[in-house]
Amino acid sequence: MQERREESKLELELKGFAVGSAVLGAAYAALGVLEVVSVAGGFSFEPVPADAAGGLCLLVVAATFLLGAKELLEGRTLGISFVVVGVALAAVFGLLYVLIAVAHALMFVLGEAEELSLLAELRPEIWLALAAAAMAPYLRRALKELRAI
């Protein structure tokens, strides 16, 4: 009885990850498309930059999350792997753009940059990484329940 209850709790948690992963995947996909389209259309609006390569990277993160959502919704536990890697990739790109923002701030301090726009520096990759990071403690708990870590 206890075992069954724990199983259904885990199942529920995995469904929750599927929803979270789908939402993050959709957000990453939308922003990735915007970043790529901005280059083709020759426009950009802060804080979404016109950055084709950066946009393509966002689409890779989006695909990772969406595949995870698909597998989890189909009841495959291994689908959680995509969520783990998606969160890791989100962290890599979030951290990268934080470091780049710090570098830009340093360039401004050194007098090498004429202006420093906080809005432009807070790229979507940073706040999306924060959203993905919110899943990390729950993921850790789920992985422990699955005895993967």
Binding site: A63, T64, S81, V84, V85, L146, A148, I149
Partner: peptide, 18 residues
Amino acid sequence: ERLTLTDMLDHVFLHRAL
């Protein structure tokens, strides 16, 4: 059967399409 973190990460990093 225990699923290891290495198995899980490999499921994605070695994915045919991704």
